[in-house]
């Protein structure tokens, strides 16, 4: 009777050990998983440095924090929100799309729109015949512009090409 009990206990122990190791393996995120999130966060201390490549000790701890949160089952968005809550919106690679920050996104579009409008107006105005050219552009039948004159003007235009 004792022997089966001992075998059962041993099997139970080994099973628990296996489950423990397996679950530990399953819940320890890889460097790549950590970096995938760290890449989109910026170091709150050293500006303009993504967290995945920042060499400071603080950033090393933040990467470990990401690993811990991932192992606890947090999603990427939850981790990002956590960092924003702790250190402000500056940790995000881009400003959050809300409130005043929309201006940062919309301004280039508006400026480009203004640029297209200016280009259109410039194009329209440059299409208007210039006073001098308008005179020259009278039909060839005009008595003031003989065929010889026309040829000379054509030649002059060709020279300028």
């Amino acid at each position: 009777m004792k022997k089966p009990l001992a075998v059962f206990l041993l099997v139970f122990l080994l099973f628990n050990l296996w489950v423990g190791v397996a679950s530990a393996q399953a819940t320890t995120p890889s460097d790549d998983e950590v970096n995938a999130i760290a890449k989109e966060l910026f170091c709150p201390v050293c500006e303009n440095t993504p967290l995945d490549v920042c060499p400071t000790e603080a950033c090393k701890q933040w990467r470990e924090l990401i690993r811990l949160k991932l192992s606890e089952g947090w999603s990427k968005e939850q981790i990002q929100d956590y960092f924003v809550e702790q250190y402000g919106a500056r940790v995000l690679a881009e400003p959050p799309r809300q409130g005043w920050y929309w201006l940062i996104y919309l301004m280039p579009v508006a400026l480009f729109g203004v640029g297209i409008f200016i280009l259109y107006r410039a194009y329209q105005s440059m299409r208007q015949p210039l006073p001098l050219e308008a005179d020259e552009a009278q039909p060839p039948a005009s008595p003031s512009l003989s065929d010889a004159d026309l040829r000379r003007v054509e030649e002059e235009l060709n020279k300028r090409k």
């Binding site: 910026f42 400003p95 940062i104 996104y105 301004m107 280039p108 400026l111």
Partner: peptide, 30 residues
């Protein structure tokens, strides 16, 4: 157009700091 994006991207963290008191990062994805 590219100049506008670059210029605005560079100065908007400063503008943001002035307007909201909070600095933001305008990074490569933008």
């Amino acid at each position: 157009g590219i100049l506008g994006i670059c210029f605005w991207g560079v100065i908007s963290p400063l503008v943001s700091e002035l307007a909201t008191g909070a600095k933001v990062t305008v990074g490569p994805p933008y």
